[in-house]
Each structure stands twice: as C-alpha cells, then as structure tokens.
Simulated scan of single mutants.
Amino acid sequence: MGTTDVVLTDTSPYGSRMVTVEYEGASSVAYLRGAGGGIHGAVWLANHGQAPSSVDLDRLGRGQAPVMPRAHTRIPEGTPPFTSAELEVLWFEEGDGAALYRNGDLLAVIPGWADLERGMPGYARDAVGESPFAWSLEEALEGLAPRIAKARSYWEWRHGDGAWRSFQQFAMSHLDTRVGPPGRYWDIGGETLPTVGITERPLDEYTVLSTVGMSCQRMPTVEQYIDRPDAYARVELAVATRHEPAEAAQLFLWLARYPWHSITWLGHGHTARWYGDAAGFPLGRSYAGVLMLDTVPGLPDMSGFAFGGDEVRWLWLIPLTDHELQIAAERGHDSLGLSLPGRIP
C-alpha cells in the first residue's frame, strides 16, 4: 500500500465535520469526515499521472485512493500535486458540507448528502460525467452555485464585527413584542459555534424560556427531508414552566446545539429522549423526554421572526413520559391526545 500524505485538514466552525485532502502518489482525494475521523463523503480531485483506460480494481482492493479512468477526467495527462497553501475550504452555513478552492478557483464540492455507500460522491471540477469517484462539477453548478454564494456571504457576515450582537438584539426585540419583557439571560455557548443564549420571560402564571441564537444558522440535513427547507431550517426552542426556570433551562444545554454537533435537525412532531438518569430530567422525574410542537394552545405565538430570508419557527418542548415517548415513536404524536395546557410543569 502506498504512502498517504494529508495535504490539508480543515474543521467546520461547529467542530462536527472536517475536510481532509489526501495525496497518494497517483491521485488526490478530498474526504468529508466526522469529528472521530469516519468518512461521510468523498470526491476524487485529480490524477497526477496518465489516466488508465479503466478502473484499477486491484488498487481499490488494496485500500488505495482511486485513479480516475481516462473517460471521466478532463485532464487525462494528470496535474501536479496540490499544496496546502493553495487550498481553501468554504463550509456551508449548516456545517454538513463544504466547497474546496484552489488558488481562488472552485475545485470541488462535497455536499451533506454525499454518500459513497449509495454511489453519491462529491463534485469535482476535473471530472467528466458521473463515476463512482466524482461527478461533474460543471454539470451541477446551476444548483450548487447559489448555495456556495450564500455560504460565502454568510461567513463574511458572521465573522464581521458586531454580527452576533446585532442578531441577538434583533431576536430579543421580537420576543419583547411577542412574549413580554425579559428577566435573566444565560450564555450557553462553548468553544465552537453556534453561539446560543437563554432568555427568561416571566408571565403571571408561568415563565417562558427561549433560546436565542439557534436560528442564526440553518440546521443541517433539512433539505434531505423537506421540500421547502427555507420554512423549516431555522428554529428556536421554548419551554413554559411554573417551577425554577434555571432548572428548566437545562433542556437547552441538552438540545440547543445538538443539530450542528450531531448533523441532524429538529422539527414539529419530533421527540427526544433524555440522555441521563431519569431522576435528573429538568422538568420532573416522572418524565423521560420531550415532544416538539410549533404551536401550543394557550402559549404565546412566537411567529413573525425571519432571518437570512428564512422563516424562524419556535418549537415548544412538551414533557412526555416513557410510555408516551414509545407511543409517539410507534404511532405519531397526534395519537397521544395530550391536554397541552395541562403540560406546563
């Protein structure tokens, strides 16, 4: 087996994915990896010598990177190897895919839906047609170019001075109008994005807690399940409680950064089972998890907020027992017949 040189490693702003560009003598490949190193997507980038007439199955059998056959490369004579100084990674806003540039020119794209097991590699500039190792970037640019442009625009804004503060004030003002004046505020951000806070809104009979910051970036994978991701890709979470708000706020420590760190999404009707000991569930030991609903009778209507051209949905966290979680998983949440106003713990 040949020696593999890792030319570039770049970790997403959320810390859950990384792109590596690897050189193996005859070719170079870019991989989309999880934080633990597992491969989630890959794309051939270039041959560094004459292209063969067919796929070298023996090479693949030895676990080596593929060399693109002549019929599927724009440069059959090959190109010089890449250097780290000439490569740049642009992450999608969601953090589940990335574009790779060489000296400012788009070289390849590995979207979040790339999946080698399903025969879906990434897109490469020098690829021709479709092969198991890369699909033509030129043929896919009509769909990918707007996504890439939005990603660059987003990160230029996000890394600019005052970006987070302006978003935070925008969201807080919306909640002032829809719920009422704020109480305490907790910052629950970590070393990686997303930056998220919790705002407390005391009302007469209960207190509303809401995240602030989840909707500052789109959730990953929504487009793989929803026809209109612009209406579902941005969310905030909320909970109503009659008990100590600081205890209920622990739900957000659990869920607020989960979509970007686990590359998934949260939506209406989704459930989540508490990860710890039942006695430690923030809304009472009789419950085992939560149901997420975008509308709950009797609770404030949070609608009307938008960011980045997308509607923002607030998902209320409704506590469920272990038995109710099982029913929701088997038959859907509508079968529970919950008295939602009575579910304010």
Rank of each mutant, 00 (worst) to 15 (best):
T241Y: 07
S12Q: 11
S53I: 00
T11K: 11
G284V: 11
R33G: 06
A163N: 06
R331K: 10
M68E: 14
E22T: 11
W164S: 01
P229H: 10
E247Q: 15
S136K: 03
R257M: 13
R70L: 01
G63L: 00
G284S: 06
G112R: 04
P132T: 00
K150R: 14
R102N: 10
F82G: 06
A278V: 07
A85D: 15
G61F: 00
L175D: 05
Y185E: 15
E77A: 15
G37T: 07
E22Y: 12
A65I: 04
Y101G: 03
L141V: 02
T192N: 01
A278C: 00
G280L: 14
R125Y: 11
G129T: 08
T192M: 10
R59L: 00
G63K: 02
L320Y: 02
W314G: 02
F92W: 10
G112S: 08
A149F: 06
G104Q: 10
R165S: 14
Q250N: 12
E117M: 13
G162N: 12
L144G: 01
G190L: 12
A279T: 11
V312F: 01
G269E: 04
S335T: 06
L266E: 01
L209K: 06
L320S: 03
G15I: 09
M18T: 08
N47C: 04
A71E: 14
Q169E: 15
E117I: 09
